[in-house]
Amino acid sequence: MTDHFTPANLDLAHEIIGRYPVKRSAMIPLLHLAQEQDGWVTEDAMRQIAELVEVTPAEVLGTCSFYEMFKRQPVGRFLINICGTLSCQLMGAEDLIHHAEQTLGITSGDTTPDGLFTLAVAECQAACTEAPCLQVNYRHRYKVTPADFDDLVEELRRQAGEGEGPDPQSPETAGVPRHGVLSVARQHIPAERAAGPSSPTTNQGPPVWMPPPDAEEPK
């Protein structure tokens, strides 16, 4: 058994898997959990996920490599995604991207030598009326001017200088959590309230609240 997840995260992984009728469905949430723990998705994590959801490591890599958000090499503590799609482009995204590259001294796709920032040109972030927009570790910033960008970088540098940053498991997060931490709130289904997953392999007939078909009046 690969031993990559921390005991707390392993418990979380089992809790997540338990919600799905088919274990493999937990794959993407578990990849996010691995990225939250390590900041990126390591091969060891993929091996352990394979064991947990009972597929081959290659299948985990297959899924992992399909999705933009999973990084298979380390990235900066803050991933800055600047939207370059049409609404933002019309409102000056190209200049903002150029400015960001100058400010950080890197081209998009790269990470600053101090490991703090990765810059990327991203796609539509569903904030089109607030163009141009960007996301820092998937937290939106709206109507960003070049000056706003510089302020943001200063703010993030200051935050980084204050220590390791927030505990990813804590909902009491200060500032922008480091890359990998997505939602700071998690769903927990209390056992006594759970209806339980619906297994696709057993046809147990209609649920109790549904009258059998012949009992219903045709509408």
């Binding site: 993407i28 999705y67 958000m69 539509c124 769903q187 759970a194 109790v208």
Partner: peptide, 23 residues
């Protein structure tokens, strides 16, 4: 949400699932 919703025999889990970036 969950078992016996609002005291009835209607039971269903709502599971939050999240994607990872693919239009």
């Amino acid at each position: 949400v969950g078992r016996n919703i609002m005291g009835t025999d209607f039971s269903v889990d709502v599971v939050l699932h999240w994607g990872a970036g693919a239009y």
